[in-house]
Structures are given as C-alpha cells and as structure tokens.
Amino acid sequence: MSIALDPLDKKILTELQSDASQSLDEIAKKVGASKTPIWNRIRKMREAGLITKQTTLIDPEMLGLEACFFVLIRTSEHDENWQAKFLKTLLERPEVMEAHRLAGDIDYILKVRVTNAKAYDTFYQALISEVKIFNVTALLSMEEIKSTTMLPVD
C-alpha cells in the first residue's frame, strides 16, 4: 500500500532521510514552511506508518567491521519449521545486516559484517550448526561503491 504525498511531504521526507537530527526550525527553513505544519505532517506520516523509526548510522570500519560478505544460500528445506528456525537464527546473529528471500536459483541472500575472514568462518560455522543448508556461497565485497538508506521520494 502506498501513501499519497504532496511536494511538501516529499521535501520533508528528503530532509529527514538526509539528517533526522535536524530541528523542526531547520527543516521548516529548508522546505519553505513554518514549524507547526511541518510537525503535523511528520506526526501524520508516523501515524500512517510511513515513517517507521529514527536511528543513527555508524561507520562499520571505525568499529573494526572491515569485511562485508554477501552470503548466497540454497536450501533443500522449505517447510514452515525450517523457515522458522532459519529466521530465528538470522535474527539472533548481529553480524547479519540484511536478509532477503529470493526468487530464482538462490533462496536467500545475507549481508554480513564482520572483522575479517576468520570472523566470517565463525559466523558460518555457527549458522550451519543451527540450520540445515544445502549450499552456501560467500562473496567478499572488495569495495563499497554505493550504500544509502535514502529512498527516492519523487
């Protein structure tokens, strides 16, 4: 389900995605409106579920998480119990930044952040000890070319 947004809503969302720590005064000045209507629109977008949460982005390399692996998973298991166990395992692993169920030959793709290859192996060993997996392929990202949390609102 999508929500109808007017140009002012889109400007507000762009500003919030750019830096949600901005004050209402700063946002209002940048989008050309006063504080009260800005606050009311933000509140309505939260209530509608469009704005889900505010968070802080942290540089992973400054935390020593220098290795980013994309993990391709194929499974021969597709029943509800296996999926529930797999989901529980992924949710409990802080290394897993993203997880997607796919259409096609690969069943799942994970984005995993760890300190190095040895830490990835520790993650891998823990994963396969928890759930039965047919095939795992790990791809090391050599360079992050683009990474954004900003969605296009135009």
Rank of each mutant, 00 (worst) to 15 (best):
L65G: 02
L139N: 11
Q83T: 09
R46E: 14
R93P: 00
A119F: 09
W82E: 12
P94V: 00
A4G: 03
I38F: 12
W82T: 03
L63G: 06
T56A: 07
K35L: 02
L5V: 08
I38W: 02
E77T: 02
V131N: 15
L102E: 07
L139T: 09
D9I: 09
H100M: 14
K35S: 01
E26N: 07
T52E: 11
A67E: 07
L91D: 01
K146S: 15
E47Y: 09
S2M: 08
A67C: 09
K111R: 11
I145L: 07
L57Y: 06
H100S: 04
F86Q: 03
L102I: 04
T56K: 12
T52A: 02
T36A: 08
M45I: 10
A20Q: 05
A103K: 10
S18G: 04
R74S: 15
K132W: 02
Q17K: 11
K111T: 15
I58E: 04
D105C: 03
L140P: 00
E47S: 07
A4K: 11
E26G: 07
V71R: 00
I106Y: 06
T55L: 12
L90N: 08
L87T: 06
L8R: 14
A33M: 11
K44L: 09
A126E: 08
M142S: 12
L8N: 01
I42P: 07
Q17V: 13
P94I: 00
